[in-house]
Amino acid sequence: MASQGFPRGLRILTGGEYRHVFDNASFKVHGKGLLALATPNDLGHVRVGLVFSKKNLKRAVDRNRLKRLTRESIRLRQHWLPAVDIVVLSRRGVHELEAQTLARQLHGMWRRLEKDVQRQSKPQ
């Protein structure tokens, strides 16, 4: 059985890694209140970084809730996501979404990202 943990290796940790994704974003996936930027990596697995600003989510409890739900979504789908670095950004109004709605939103975003990566990697 495959591990379902969320180890340090699945996280984007340094400013340089975040900058690389921002500068070289090959894929953009929009959701209601969220935006995911992604770029392929050579690691063979997905990595995720989270940017939830105080401007869009005033309360720390809201930012932490959103981070927790996003990490859980990645953790559960890490084995079928393509080998990309993903940075998830919050937008205005995201704090109004309920947990179930947010989970569905994230699931749909990961499916679209997977399709976009497959479409780009196919020879034409």
Rank of each mutant, 00 (worst) to 15 (best):
K54Y: 06
A83L: 02
N64C: 05
P7F: 03
K28G: 15
R71L: 09
V84G: 01
V88Q: 03
S53P: 04
L66H: 07
D116A: 15
A103F: 05
Q120A: 12
M1L: 07
F22A: 00
A2H: 13
F52P: 05
G49C: 11
L43Y: 12
H95E: 12
G9H: 10
L34S: 00
G93Q: 00
R112H: 09
T70D: 03
F52G: 06
W80Y: 12
P82H: 02
H45N: 04
R75I: 01
H107I: 11
Q78I: 01
A83G: 08
S3F: 13
K54I: 02
P123H: 15
V94K: 05
G5F: 04
G33Q: 04
A103R: 13
Q105K: 07
F22Y: 15
L37K: 09
K115W: 07
A25M: 04
R47N: 06
L66G: 00
S53M: 08
K28V: 15
N56L: 03
L113Y: 00
K28L: 13
A2V: 09
P82W: 05
V84I: 04
D42S: 11
V94I: 14
A83C: 05
R63A: 08
R68M: 03
H107W: 01
S53N: 08
L66Q: 08
R11L: 07
E114A: 12
D116K: 15
F6E: 08
R112C: 08
D116C: 06
E98H: 06
G31S: 05
I86L: 02
L69A: 13
R71C: 05
Q100L: 11
L57K: 04
P40A: 13
G33C: 04
R91W: 00
V48M: 12
M1Y: 03
L57G: 01
E17D: 13
G15C: 12
A60N: 10
R119G: 12
G93E: 00
P7H: 07
L81T: 02
I86C: 09
T70H: 01
A60V: 05
I74V: 15
S121F: 07
I12A: 00
G9I: 06
P82K: 01
T39W: 09
N56C: 11
L37M: 14
F52Q: 06
F6D: 03
L76V: 06
E72T: 12
F52A: 11
G16T: 12
A38L: 01
S53C: 07
V117G: 00
V61T: 13
F27V: 11
D23Y: 01
A83V: 02
R71W: 05
Q100R: 13
S73W: 02
R91Y: 01
